[in-house]
Amino acid sequence: MLRLPKFELEEPATLDEALALFAEHGSDAMPIAGGTDLVPNMKHRLFEPKVVVSLARIEALTGIRVTSGGELEIGAMTTLADVARSSAVQERAPVLAQAASLIAGPQLRTMGTLGGNVMLDTRCQWYNQTHFWRTSLGYCLKKDGTECHVVQGGGKCVAAASNDTAPALMTLGATLVFQGPTPPGESKANLREIAIDALWKADGIVNKHTEPGEILTAIRIPAQAAGHRGAYGKLRDRGSIDFPLFGCAVRLDVGTDEAVTGADICAVALVARPSHVKRIEDELVGQRVGSDDFASAVGRVAELAYKQCRPMDNSPGDADYRREMVPVYVRRTLHAAAQGAGPVHHV
C-alpha cells in the first residue's frame, strides 16, 4: 500500500476545541476536512504533520443557509456533492453548483468539502508525485529542493491553483470567514472575514494569505444582481476525475432588456493564483445577450483572455494546446452563461 506517514489524529467536536488544538500544536498540526487532497499529499510525503485535526465532527461547519438578506452562507465542511445539488446554490450561484459538479468523481465529491476545495494546495506535475519519484527527480523548489522544473532557472514556484470552485467564488464576490485561536487573555472569537480575492498570493509554494492556526469556517456569497447568470467551463482530458487543465467561471448580470450590466470572468489552473480576466466589462456591458454585437464582444473577450492567460508546464499535457483552448472555453462559457446553460465540458 501507499502508506500514510504516522501522525496523531484529533477529532474535536467543537470549533473551540479545534482552535485550542491548533494553538497547542502550532505548525505541527493540520486540519483535515474530506481528506481527498490532504491524504494523497501525505501519502506522497508532501505534508507530514504530527497531528491531524479532523473537522468532520464539528457540526456547526456544515450546511447551506440563505440569510434574510439573500446571502448564501455555506459551511466550510459542506460537501461538494451537497453544494452541487443544493437548489439554493443552483438558483443563486449557478456557477458554483456547476463548478462543484465537475470536481473529481462522484465519491470524491461526496467526501470533499467546499472549504477543502478553497484551501486546496497548488498542483504541479513535478510535485504531486510519490516520495521516490521526487527523490529521483532531485525535488523542486516547492518541496525539499532548490530548482523549478517548470520555469527552468526561475526562482519562484508557479504551481497551479487547481480548485474549480475558486474562480466561481471569485466571480460571485464571495467572502471567506476564518476563525483563529483566541489569543490568551481575549474572550472574543478571533474572526476574520476577507474577500476571496484577498486570499491569494502569487506564490505556488503557499498561494494563500492565512494566519497560523486559523480555520476556514464559512463561505459567504452575497446576493447577486437581479439578472444574475453564471456558468463554469472546464477543460480536462477525461469526462470525470481529472483536475482542470483550464477552468473559467463566468458571471453575467443581465438587465430586463437583456443588456449586460456587469460581467466577470475568472480563470484557474494557470499559475499559483486564480485570476480575473481584466477589462472585459468594457466589451460586454451594454450588449444585448444573444445579439450579433454580443457575439462579437464575446469574441473580443475571448481574445483578451487569450492574451492574459498563459498556461504553463505545471499541469500534465500540452501547455500550448491549453492556451489555445483559453479563448474557446471562455467564449463557450460566456455563451452558456448568457443562455442560462452550462457547464461547458466535453461530456
Binding site: L9, E11, P40
Partner: peptide, 13 residues
C-alpha cells in the same frame, strides 16, 4: 449510504 473511497478515509473518522 453514499459511495466513498475507503483508501482516503482515515479509519477512525
Amino acid at each position: 449510504g453514499s459511495p466513498v473511497l475507503s483508501c482516503l478515509r482515515l479509519a477512525a473518522t
